[in-house]
């Protein structure tokens, strides 16, 4: 992070956390929106961590080969949908457990990305541009904190659009029906497996886009330590956001801020607990899960066909 932040004294901390939140939250946002779609249809994809890493690798590779970072985003979405399709197809078989398949695809995706990504660690691919939203200010730290990526803004827009689509459009209704009661959906003549398959594909595509953000904007290069559980935290975050896309957005910003805490403190010279602060987002996730889970009853907003939050 920018060492100049320290000139602002302790005010640099909230500023760095804010800037970090705007930068770091995008992967959380895209993965959680994707998982939201999948879970609304009554299925859990725990493999989005693997999809995220695959998306980061594919986005970086396509951007490097074509010279266009936006084609990279598209490629990441394509790879993400392929992983979603694999998950959706496998879970459509009888007696195949979706949580277990998610774990398997998490390990498979990470392994495959590491394998295919070996040649991508050295070269530099063109990155996504940033929009300088902080130009009203003369302070360079404010400017750098508010240099927001266009892809992130797309995600911010996608959240209310998705909420509206789930609530008000016919396909949103079908999706929710399948998630609330497969029998009712079947009685109405909808193919439950088909809807869930496409919900998983869409979720995978969004997670892939989230991965491309990691490699093409922030941190902005490809390496094997790129994702450390963001994909999985995003799945937990959906439970916390009670399956509402707009609340997913707020939760993503919160998580982004928590992730940025360690580097922000480091930037003002507090380095002693740096590695400990890396645990902040995980601890926050766990804390929030404890608060938002209950042994007695399922949350009223939870799709009834869903088993993960049981």
């Amino acid at each position: 992070m920018d060492p100049a932040v320290s000139n602002l004294g302790l005010w640099g901390i909230p500023l760095a956390v804010l800037g970090g939140a705007l930068r770091v939250s995008a992967p959380f946002l895209f993965v959680s929106l994707g998982e939201c779609i999948t879970e609304k249809a009554g299925r859990v994809n725990l493999g989005l961590e693997g999809t995220l890493v695959m998306g980061a690798m594919a986005g970086y590779g396509v951007s490097y080969l074509t010279g266009s970072p936006w084609l990279g985003v598209l490629g990441a979405a394509g790879v993400g949908s392929a992983f979603g399709a694999l998950h959706g197809w496998l879970c459509g078989r009888p007696r195949v457990n979706d949580v277990a398949v998610g774990i398997a695809l998490m390990l498979f995706g990470v392994g495959l990305a590491f394998y295919l990504g070996k040649p991508l660690i050295q070269p530099t691919a063109p990155r996504l541009p940033a929009l300088p939203l902080g130009n009203f200010s003369d302070i360079p730290q404010v400017r750098s904190a508010l240099a927001v990526n266009a892809l992130f803004l797309l995600g911010v827009l996608a959240a209310p659009v998705l909420r509206w689509a789930l609530a008000r459009t016919s396909w949103g209704l079908v999706l929710r029906t399948v998630g609330e009661s497969a029998e009712a959906a079947r009685a109405m003549g909808y193919d439950v497996g088909w809807v869930r398959f496409w919900a998983t594909v869409a979720g995978g595509a969004l997670a892939g886009v989230g991965g491309s953000f990691l490699s093409l904007f922030y941190p902005g290069s490809y390496n094997e330590g790129l994702s450390s559980g963001q994909g999985l935290m995003a799945v937990a975050l959906v439970i916390f956001a009670r399956w509402d896309p707009v609340r997913c957005l707020y939760a993503s910003l919160l998580f982004g801020g928590a992730t940025a805490l360690g580097p922000a403190l480091q930037s003002v010279g507090i380095t002693s607990g740096y590695y400990l602060f890396n645990a902040a987002p995980y601890a926050l996730t766990l804390f929030i899960m404890v608060l938002s889970s209950s042994n007695e009853r399922a949350s009223a907003d939870q799709p009834a066909e869903l088993i993960v939050a049981r």
């Binding site: 725990l46 559980g229 799945v235 889970s293 209950s294 049981r310």
Partner: peptide, 10 residues
């Protein structure tokens, strides 16, 4: 009632 898969990985 915290999901043990996510909880244990966190």
């Amino acid at each position: 009632g915290v999901n043990e898969t996510i909880g244990s990985l966190l």
